[in-house]
């Protein structure tokens, strides 16, 4: 419990900053909705006239951008990007900072096992991620609701946020697993963030080129696509299971490796 509370306190400031950023992003992102919608009769037609690659960068062309919640779906990718960056840095940092700050010699000589320390840190990280997710959920429902002319948006947004939560947990586990497994604490954050960037860019490339659709299993960013969640068939159970299995596998890896390796500083 003491380690959990210590970690919450240590990450409080950064969590507040992230939450302010995410609210700011939702507000400003939806602010453009009025700009686009009021300036043209049919933004969807306008978008449809653009080349496919440009559409992909704008969040995909399958959306009816005159609907507030579908417009929100098109900026959702960037929300996910922020959320996963937060998650991967959090997961990596919460483990490796004991070594980078040289506090292992304080914490690890206490009468607690390494497993219990990881557990406490995981709980603290998940708490941060849930707060991040709920902040996004509540601010999105409030702000999208403001533009949706009475249409209920809660269910749609909640579905998107469940997808985001799974991705957050996945990237947190990637960060945790690399930091716990590797002795080189300076490199682990970079490696995890690198994986995130590569898979993110890959998902963009897949969006631009229909022929690459088969690669969608490789990048987690395609698992919970806003388009499928909002206007398509919803959650794909195989991909949900795959995500949960990866989270579990990475977490087990973190425990096993952290218990076995030398702690340096």
């Amino acid at each position: 419990m003491n380690v959990y509370l210590r970690e919450l306190r240590a990450y409080r400031k950064s969590l507040i900053i992230w939450c302010v950023c995410i609210i700011f992003f939702v507000v400003s992102g939806m602010g453009k909705y009025t700009a686009i919608y009021s300036g043209m009769n049919s933004p969807t037609d306008f978008l449809a006239s653009m080349p496919k690659s440009l559409q992909a960068l704008m969040g995909g062309g399958a959306f009816d951008l005159s609907k507030a919640v579908e417009y929100f779906g098109s900026i959702f990718l960037y929300l996910i990007f922020m959320a996963t960056i937060h998650a991967v840095m959090l997961g990596s940092g919460i483990i490796s900072k004991e070594e980078s700050d040289k506090t292992t010699e304080f914490l690890m000589v206490k009468p607690v096992s390494r497993s219990r320390i990881i557990t406490a840190k995981l709980f603290a990280a998940v708490t941060n991620i849930i707060v991040f997710n709920l902040t996004t959920l509540i601010s999105s429902i409030a702000i999208v609701g403001k533009y949706s002319k009475g249409e209920a948006v809660g269910g749609d947004i909640a579905r998107l946020m469940v997808g985001m939560l799974l991705l957050q947990l996945l990237f947190m586990s990637i960060g945790v697993a690399f930091a716990a497994a590797s002795k080189n604490f300076r490199a682990t954050g970079g490696v995890s963030t690198g994986i995130l960037l590569i898979t993110f860019i890959m998902s963009m490339v897949i969006d631009m080129n229909e022929n690459l659709e088969g690669l969608k299993y490789i990048t987690p960013f395609k698992y919970f696509d806003a388009k499928t969640l909002l206007v398509g068939e919803g959650f794909n159970p195989v991909l949900v299971l795959l995500t949960v299995a990866m989270i579990a596998g990475l977490t087990v890896l973190a425990y096993v490796r952290y218990n076995k390796r030398d702690l340096g500083h």
């Binding site: 700050d101 506090t103 010699e105 304080f106 009468p111 607690v112």
Partner: peptide
């Protein structure tokens, strides 16, 4: 280790603590 450490006090050569 976790049990043994109840009775051990340790002073490292260089001390580093949380910010």
């Amino acid at each position: 280790a976790p049990e043994v450490m109840k009775d051990v006090g340790y002073l490292p050569s260089e001390v580093f603590y949380y910010d």
